[in-house]
C-alpha cells in the first residue's frame, strides 16, 4: 500500500493552487524516493515538474511504485476541505482505483477522510536535459509575481533580458511599453529579499505573459523564486517547497520567425 503523512498539510494545499490553473489532470508517481509529477499544460507550451521527497513526510510508505492519475479540479475541491493547520495523509492500496485523503486537526478532535476515483492517464514522461544555464536570477517571489502582473497589462509577451548590470523585464502593446530593471542586490542581508544574478553570458528571451502569471500561483510556496535562462531553450521558474522539494515550471520561448 501507499501512505504519505504530511504534518504541514498547508504545503499540499499550496501545491494544489500552484498546479490547478495550468493542469486539468496529472499522474502522481509514487516511489520509495517520494512523489513526482510531470505534465504539460493543454497547449504543450509549458511543463510542470513537482518533486516531494519521502524524507519530507512525517510517515512515508510505498510498498510498490504507484502512478495515480488524478483530476486536479476534483483534488483541489477535496484539499479545500482541509484546514491550513491540518495534518494531511494520502493513502492508496496497491493497484487501487481510488485514493483517500485524511485530514486530522492538530488536536485530533476532528478527522475527515475523502475518497476520490483515480483516472487512467497514459501520460508520456518527457526527458528534461541537464542544462548549464547562461543566466540564473534569484529574486523575491512576490517581486516576480508583481512584475508579471504589472507588465502583462501592456502586452501578451514579456522580454526578459539578463546582463551583468541586472535583469530587465519588458512588455509592449497597444497602450504602450513597460520596462522594469532589477539590479543585483548590493548587500545580501536578508537572503530571501535579495536579487542575485549569476551570468555566464547575456541572454534575452521572449515569453508569453499568461503562462508566467500562471506560474506565479506558486508564490505562496516560497519567499524566493529562481529563473534560469539560456538562448533558445525553455525558461525554468523554480519555487522551493520548504525542505521537502520543489515545483519547476518550464516555458518554451517565443522565437522570431
Amino acid at each position: 500500500m501507499f501512505e504519505a503523512r504530511l504534518l504541514q498539510g498547508s504545503l499540499l494545499k499550496k501545491v494544489m493552487e500552484a498546479l490547478k490553473e495550468l493542469l486539468n489532470e496529472a499522474a502522481w508517481d509514487c516511489s520509495d524516493a517520494g512523489i513526482q509529477l510531470q505534465a504539460m499544460d493543454n497547449s504543450h507550451v509549458s511543463l510542470v515538474s513537482l518533486n516531494l521527497r519521502a524524507e519530507g513526510f512525517d510517515k512515508y510508505r510505498c510498498d510498490r511504485n504507484l502512478s495515480m492519475g488524478m483530476n486536479l479540479g476534483s483534488m483541489s475541491k477535496i484539499l479545500k476541505c482541509a484546514s491550513n493547520e491540518d495534518i494531511i495523509t494520502i493513502k492508496a492500496q496497491d493497484n487501487a482505483d481510488t485514493v483517500t485523503f485524511v485530514f486530522e486537526s492538530p488536536d485530533q478532535d476532528k478527522v475527515s477522510d475523502y475518497e476520490m476515483k483515480l483516472m487512467n492517464l497514459d501520460q508520456e514522461h518527457l526527458g528534461i536535459p541537464e542544462t548549464d544555464y547562461a543566466c540564473t536570477i534569484r529574486l523575491p517571489s512576490s517581486e516576480f509575481a508583481r512584475i508579471c502582473r504589472d507588465l502583462s497589462q501592456f502586452g501578451e509577451s514579456m522580454v526578459i533580458s539578463c546582463t551583468k548590470e541586472g535583469v530587465r523585464f519588458s512588455a509592449t502593446g497597444d497602450i504602450g511599453t513597460g520596462n522594469i530593471k532589477l539590479a543585483q542586490s548590493a548587500k545580501v542581508d536578508k537572503e530571501e529579499e535579495a536579487v542575485v544574478i549569476e551570468m555566464q553570458e547575456p541572454v534575452s528571451l521572449t515569453f508569453a505573459c499568461r503562462y508566467l502569471n500562471s506560474f506565479t500561483k506558486a508564490t505562496s510556496l516560497s519567499k524566493s523564486v529562481q529563473l534560469s535562462m539560456s538562448p533558445e531553450v525553455p525558461l525554468v521558474v523554480e519555487y522551493k517547497i520548504e525542505d521537502i522539494g520543489h515545483v519547476r515550471y518550464y516555458l518554451a520561448p517565443k522565437i522570431e520567425d
Binding site: I128, P129, P234, L251, A252, K254, I255, E256, D257
Partner: peptide
C-alpha cells in the same frame, strides 16, 4: 512576429 514554440520541441519522450 514572435512565434510561440511548443515545449515538446525541446523535451522528448523519455
Amino acid at each position: 512576429k514572435n512565434q510561440q514554440v511548443k515545449i515538446s520541441k525541446f523535451f522528448h519522450v523519455a
